[in-house]
Each structure stands twice: as C-alpha cells, then as structure tokens.
Amino acid sequence: MSNKKDNFWIPYADLMTVLMVVFLFISIAYMGLVQFQKKEQDKIFKDYRETKENLYKDLNEEFKNDFKKWDLELDKDLSIKFTNPQVLFKSGASEITPKFQQILTSFFPKYLTIVLQDKYKDKIAEIRIEGHTDNIAIHETNDPYIDNVKLSQDRSRNVLQFLRKLPYYRNLSSEKEEILQFWITANGLSYGRTLDSNKKLVYITKGKIDIEKSRRVEFKIVTTSEILVDEVLKQMKQ
C-alpha cells in the first residue's frame, strides 16, 4: 500500500516541478517582452522630441529675420502662423491679396528648404495649410459655422493653388513634387479654433474671442513620430 502511494506522489511532484519551470519561462518571456516594449516606447518618445526640436530650431533659424516683416509666428507645435488678417484676404473673401502673394512667393521656397531636407524625409507625415476665420456670420443663413467652413476651405485651397503655380514649385524634381503632394493638405477649420487676446485657443481658455487674432493662415507640420506617440498613449490607457 505504501509503495502505491509513493508511486503516485513522485510523478505528481515531477509534474508540479515541470509546471513551475514552464511558468518561470513564461514569466521571464513576459518580462522580456515588457522590457522590449518599454524600450520601443522610449525610442518613439525620444524620436518625437528630437524631431520636433530639430524642426523648430531649423525653422526658427530660417525665418528669424522674417517674423516681424511678414507677421509670422512659430509655435512649438511646428505651426507657422500668418497673423495679419488685413494682409491675407479681404473680409469675407477668399482671393489672396497681392501683398500676401508677395509674401508667399518668398516664404515657400525658404519653407521647403527646411522640410525637404533628407533628414526629414521619413519624419514628416503631413503639412497642413489651415484656414481659420472669426465667428462673424458671412451671410444671413441658418448655419454661419458652415458658411465659414466654406470660406476657410476656399482660402486654404487658394493658398495651395497659388503655391503650386510658383516657378519655384514647377522647377522641383518629380520626386520632390510627389513628396509634397503626399504631405500637403488644405484644410478649412472655420471658427472651431478661435483665439483669445493671448493667442490661446478659446476652446481651452474659455476666454473672449479675439476676432483679429483668430483670422489667420497656418502651415503646420505633423511628424510621423507624433502619430506613433498617439498610438502608444492610446495603448497605455487601455
């Protein structure tokens, strides 16, 4: 009777040992996977910071003598804002003023000098030309927001159309033109992102809309690492 019990417990003990070893290997593998994911996430965040810092530095250096002259502002989010509405378009109109045409003719080649560098070829996901309006109704309609969507879209589209007709653009290589067609989009944001007197988003500050500062055109760079960072943050919240 004793031998039968011993014969039972010995295999059972061996089985428990095997299971413990299996669980140990699983734990080690899991910890290795977690460490690998952590390294990958750290790499993504590092690339995100470095890309934005380098682009900001290059843009700031390129346009340091033009900010006041052209009423430009460069933000840390890599958006360049044309902030003088009187220079850009006539009130309620989408046609680019002669003055703004002159500015864009000089601005765009300098801008492309930065973004078309080889070091940014795989770092940029999109360049958005954004049109922003104030919250004043253009026509007597039931939805002034939609009216301003159309106006802001027309303005951003006209900016893009003008840039594509520039001799500088037409002389670009087919490869660079293909890259720009992939990157550049024209967006009309109506008065969804109006600014207050401190040039902060009213949606966030809940302050009073500054009509003059809200009417603007922006060139905004979205980096590839920025998209990856968003994905990582989503995964971390799950």
Rank of each mutant, 00 (worst) to 15 (best):
S2C: 02
S2E: 11
P11A: 00
Y12Q: 10
D14N: 14
D14I: 03
L15A: 07
L19T: 08
V22L: 14
F23L: 12
L24G: 13
I26A: 14
A29Y: 15
Y30T: 10
M31P: 00
Q35A: 10
F36D: 14
Q41P: 00
K43T: 11
K46R: 12
K46D: 12
K46N: 14
D47N: 14
R49G: 07
R49L: 12
R49D: 13
E50K: 08
T51W: 01
T51C: 07
K52S: 10
E53C: 04
N54L: 14
Y56F: 15
K57Q: 12
L59V: 13
E61F: 11
F63L: 09
F67L: 14
F67P: 04
W70L: 02
E73G: 13
D75E: 12
D75Q: 13
I80G: 02
F82K: 02
T83R: 11
T83F: 09
N84K: 09
P85K: 03
Q86W: 05
K90E: 13
G92N: 00
A93V: 04
A93S: 10
F100A: 06
Q101S: 11
Q102E: 13
F107M: 05
F108T: 09
Y111V: 06
L112G: 05
I114D: 06
L116Q: 09
K119Q: 15
K119P: 10
K119G: 07
Y120R: 04
K123L: 06
I124W: 01
E126H: 08
E126M: 09
E126R: 13
R128Q: 15
R128H: 04
I129H: 04
E130Q: 15
E130V: 08
T133A: 14
D134L: 02
D134M: 04
E140M: 08
E140Y: 10
T141R: 02
N142I: 12
D143W: 08
D143H: 09
P144G: 09
Y145D: 10
I146A: 10
D147Q: 07
V149T: 09
V149M: 10
V149F: 10
K150Y: 11
K150N: 11
L151D: 06
S152L: 03
S156M: 03
S156I: 03
L160Y: 06
Q161C: 01
L163E: 08
R164L: 05
Y168I: 10
S173R: 03
E175L: 05
K176I: 07
E177P: 00
L180V: 02
Q181C: 02
F182T: 09
W183K: 08
N187D: 15
S190Y: 01
Y191I: 01
Y191P: 00
G192W: 00
G192A: 13
S197G: 01
S197C: 04
S197I: 13
N198C: 06
K199G: 02
Y203L: 15
I204S: 12
T205Q: 06
T205I: 07
G207V: 05
I211E: 12
E212A: 12
S214P: 01
S214F: 03
F219N: 02
K220H: 08
I221K: 07
T223K: 04
E226T: 04
E226V: 01
V229F: 05
D230G: 13
V232W: 06
L233Y: 09
K234I: 03
M236D: 13
K237L: 06
